[in-house]
Amino acid sequence: MPKFTKSPWVMHYDGSSCNGCDIEVLASMTPLYDIERLGVVNTGDPRQADILLITGGINYYNESVVRQIYSQMPEPKVVVAVGICACSGGVFRDCYNIKGGVDTTIPVDVYVPGCAARPESIIDGIVQALEVLEKKSAASAAPTEGESNA
């Protein structure tokens, strides 16, 4: 694990999931898996979140909701698609109301497989997301230093 200086705040949204992965996301916050010991806080506000955990596929009704939440998050932000339905549509990909996985609507950085995704996989996914977040922060921090010098 890389060295983290700041704790990331996680927001969870359920888009057409069966609740299995949502419950496992909540279970990762509970004492047995306790992602809070890694410094991760579950917040309900997209404007204060760094990582978006999305479960479930995208359907025609919640497409605009997901886009709105994504746009409300400040940069740098990371999207983690938790569960097979979020990765690719899962068993529902032929349903008339399902567009597909989350990457049909917003860009996804980490895919976490599993049905329901185990809390250990979710923890692994969040750790990978943290690495992606570090890279994005470093990339977005560099130009501002140049500007301040100039």
Partner: peptide, 9 residues
């Protein structure tokens, strides 16, 4: 066997 999370499908 364990399927690990990844950055691409």
């Amino acid at each position: 066997a364990y399927s690990a999370p990844a950055c691409e499908k």
